[in-house]
Design a protein around this nucleic acid. Structure first.
Lengths: 229, 229
DNA sequence: TCCGGCGCTGACTTTCGAGTCAACGAGGGG
DNA sequence: CCCCTCGTTGACTCGAAAGTCAGCGCCGGA
């Protein structure tokens, strides 16, 4: 049917426009932050008229909401896949780290928006961010609960706190990269990051006996004399 | 001298006023976030006239800047004390966790502002946060560098990444509490948190041999068959 | 070629809050 | 007791940005 075909084509063009504007919004948002993100800038970035933004989106709120949901949804589903896979804890953690750093490698700008703007600024008031954090932390908490049930988690560790620590480690590492406090070009630091994150989280930062000359006893005395430099 | 005494008294009253307004600003900021934080609200909260705020502070920017600096400065100096003490790594990490959770226990509202709102203003907000993060991460990175030099850090760990992971763990745990995703009343979770943070960071999440029935070998095969539930 | 609809335009209106300032009055000195 | 100073007040100004809308012109069909 010609009518159907035409309307389909029209709809496709509509979707293209929407995506153009959405991408422009990510761009501006990443560059200028929440406060500096004016609809006028988004329109200019997208190369369309000011009013058109309001033809495709109800208001600024909805637009930014969508920017967030798109990005977060993608990230979240990968995290969920990783956390809910049937694999050893070690592998799951490794995959979570991989998802995060891979996302940064592919789209630093998008990660910037998620990590710096949405994670730390009130967009829809607070509900959004709260929901988002609750979502990841919930998924990861359940992962640790299952790991504990299987005996993969060291005794005495609270799954919810493990989740906060794991996700916090990931998020702050990404923040470091995004802010330029950690340089991804430094000796493949980015690649190293996901390995170290997994390794440190699973086995800790403490020197092992073979690292140094002293034997370390985990259950030994807490205070060990240390020479000042 | 009477003149001096009078001017001193006047200055003291001035400082009181300033502090009243500053405290009101923290309050409103914590309650409504950056967007909802209007000078009118701060004035009402402090019980003074709108215009008086501008008698004591140059503008909104300066006021919020000061709110941030006050809180962050206190937090930062405690973190610095902990990180630069001459003590074993274990103790330093424990103290860092302690500083953070203690701060939350004493002043959840203040922590809320630092953790969630983090002075963001159009022009200098970004720079601020960047500086603040660079500052903590720098201090903690140096702590890990010294630990590495002393052989207290497991081989192959990048100090800067350790710093990001440690601070990220602290920050996300606090975020969990502040957002109500972690309930401090749940079986003393708050008290538990600082112990677990130290323990997990130093020794990892992996089950130790004595945790389960299987022997776990750290350098063993990465993939271990796990029964699906 | 002409017509009619609609995607698109951008100037205009509205809203809102930061920052100003003229005036008020408490209180201390003359 | 009066006046003058200065902390204090809050109505007002001004600018910025969100959101509206009347109309333009492109394009597809007759």
């Amino acid at each position: 049917m010609a009518g159907t075909k035409a309307s389909t084509a029209a709809e496709a063009r509509d979707q293209d426009r929407r995506k153009t504007i959405l991408r422009a919004a990510v761009e501006v948002f990443a560059r200028k932050g929440y406060h500096g993100c004016r609809i006028a800038d988004v329109a200019r970035e997208a190369g369309v008229a000011y009013g058109l933004v309001y033809h495709y989106f109800k208001n600024k709120e909805e637009l930014l909401q969508l920017v967030f949901e798109t990005g977060w949804g993608g990230f979240m589903s990968r995290i969920r896949d990783a956390a809910e896979a049937s694999a050893p804890l070690e592998q799951k953690i490794h995959r979570i780290a991989q998802v995060a750093f891979e996302a940064y490698r592919i789209d630093p700008r998008g990660v910037r928006v998620l990590v710096l703007e949405f994670a730390r600024s009130p967009s829809t008031g607070e509900a959004n961010r709260r929901t988002a954090f609750a979502e990841v932390l919930g998924v990861i908490t359940r992962m640790f609960e299952r790991a504990r049930a299987r005996g993969e988690l060291r005794a005495g560790l609270e799954p919810a706190l493990c989740a906060a620590m794991l996700f916090g480690s990931v998020e702050m590492s990404l923040t470091g990269f995004v802010m330029g406090l950690l340089d991804p070009r430094d000796s493949g630091l980015l690649a190293h990051a996901q390995e170290q994150l997994t390794s440190l989280f699973l086995d800790g930062a403490r020197a092992t006996p073979e690292d140094g000359r002293w034997k370390k006893d985990r259950s030994g005395p807490r205070l060990k004399p240390v020479r000042r430099s």
